[in-house]
Design a protein around this nucleic acid. Sequence first.
RNA 1: GCGCGUGUAGCUCAGCUGGUUAGAGUGCUACAUUGACAUUGUAGAGGUCCCAGGUUCGAAUCCUGGCACGCGCACCA
Length: 700
Amino acid sequence: MQEKFLKPYNPEEVERDIYELWDKSGFFNPDNLKDIDGENYCIVMPPPNANGRLHAGHGTDMTLKDILIRFNRMRGKKTLLLPGSDHAGFETQGVYEKKLQKEGRSRFGMEREQLYKEIYDFVMENKHVMENDVRRLGVSCDWSRNTFTLQEDVVSRVQDTFVKMYEDGMVYRGLRSIHWNPKFQTSLSDIETDFVEQKDPFFYFQYGPFVIGTARPETKFSDKYVVVHPDDKRYLDFKHGQQFDVEWINGPITATIIKDEAADPEMGSGAMTITPWHSAVDFEIAQRHNLAIEQIIDWNGKLLPVAEEFAGMKIGEAREKIVEKLKAKGLLVRVDEDYVHSVRVCERTGVVVEPQLKEQWFVKMKPLTDMALKTLDSGDYKFITKQHESIFRHWMSNPVDWNISRQIVWGIRIPAWFKDGQIKVSKNSPGEGWVQDPDTFDTWFSSGQWPLLTLGYPSGDDMKFYPTAVMETGADLVFKWVPRMIMFGLYLANQVPFKDIYFHGMVLDAKGKKMSKSKGNVLSPIELADEFGTDATRMSFVVANPPGANMPLSKDKVRAYKKFANKIWNIARFVIENTEEVDFTKRAELLPEDETLLVRSKELAVEVAGHIDAYRMDLAADKLYHYVWHEFADKILEESKPIFTSNDDELKLSRQRVVYELFTSSLKMLHPFMPFVTEEIWQSLPYKECELLMVARWPK
RNA sequence: GCGCGUGUAGCUCAGCUGGUUAGAGUGCUACAUUGACAUUGUAGAGGUCCCAGGUUCGAAUCCUGGCACGCGCACCA
């Protein structure tokens, strides 16, 4: 008996060496998988952002993917789990700006190249830390194919896509309403913003013969148009285009009546004034009627000279003062103090975004979403969780053109050039005097092409892995990443990049609350692995985590699976101890009752495989746990004790053989879930079919 | 406002297309055990399957309505 089995299982002593053993074997790389009887099986890992460490969500994500990969590798498929990292443009630059701030510096006024280089070095450093975290979790990905979104060939191909889209009329440059983050000085797309409910005073002002309501008086300076619904009986006397004089904030102005169905007669007085520069809806109305448009708030969130005495004030300050002034003028009708509404904020920074008009590059979404829905209807890809399919369909049916211009440095530069009001799109400068667009692409523009980029589109060898088997990711990406990959896949390669889409739940804390740094309830997968071992951590991510549901996680749960790892360890000790004298190289018949045990084990293998194929890793793991502990250990091994000490050699030998066989089968089945302890035991087995459990065959 | 989902033991969850007495883990209680086991084993307590109707020989499961919770979208003059 090897000495190590006399002590409890100690993950710390084995995990690093075992990972190295796998890595050195070369079997993470499908090109080295010999003796293959199956087809290609590929999963592309979502590129974790290269700006930080892994959290419990990543842990779940990677564990589930690794289970699928290890299982299919053992089944004889040519498996590729493709790692990479995302530059995560806006997010990373935000992280770096905080660092600058601490050092008393600012990105504003820094040379573009200098800032880029500093962030690059910062990210490269973090990238290695993050990649080591991935190794700690036992993820069997092919590091030789590791991809970063800002490596040269990726950048070049992302720019190719843009050029192609421009030539195909799929992108356009236009002055449109965008979401502006005044603190970080960049525009954002819809999906990078959230709504936060908030209570504000709501003001009603006398505006000539009308009473108009607003929560944002500071935008109202140049509101020269009153919009009413064409059917609103109260305003039938007013004609469209009719003008009248109004005493307003800074004196008398001339107002014009606009009749448009956008006005809701149910809402307040049914009359509203509009601020096209700072409202997407108002901008649409203005465009329909060809109305004058004027900017009121500048890019820093301060009022412009049009506000006269209020010019240069910040929004909050100006709001109060303007209300005071209107009140003094007798134009304040009433105030509703309890007005609850939702304000759009930047998802990353929480900064309230200001709608602004800006010339940006937009992707035409309608043709892409139509294509995506059509192929979904025809069954080219499917959602494992029906509720997500509904959400996806709903979202795809109401597409909004996608703003892909970002006013940040950390990203892929848009290959567009300007000269005297002309635009040219090309990767290289069209000639003298042309100035390149300073903007970079929205990060989702590159990560949306991730499966294509990592597999070498358009002509790389690895395109044989395209389309990949499954996209397994967090439900929060149902609008962000997944639709974009589907659309780019269809647009560029005529094929959706994966067959199945499977959303796992968010990992919550023990009380069912969202984990967040500010709440201090974050469980790091690495710290859990330090305390309980990676195998236990992996199991706790999987069990009771069905597709599409959120999962609370507590240390107690991880501790339970640490005990399980130790149980397996002791089973190994017992089995090896009691079968040492058996010569397994010689074949022999089993007694009928032992044959029955073998049949039961094979049935389990089929059942577990079925669960994994149906993406019910939670059920598969639970079944295995129950079998190994309460059937194999509690019943079979207990029954075997008297047999092992008996003098009936036939009975004894048959039982020794079957116990050994059942144990090795169990190790195989457990391996995708708990790779370290099973491989470590496998390495100590006196008789085995192959050197590495990782590439052993799944029991048939 | 529109849409999606969830509700089963103290806690976390299984329970597929209806079919005996509703299950597991964890927690709790009692007893046993130095053993392959920094423990483990055996046993036990613990349930109005959210509520109300309906379909059915039979409902945790299917249908309708309600309640509670979670999430998404939209509006936000």
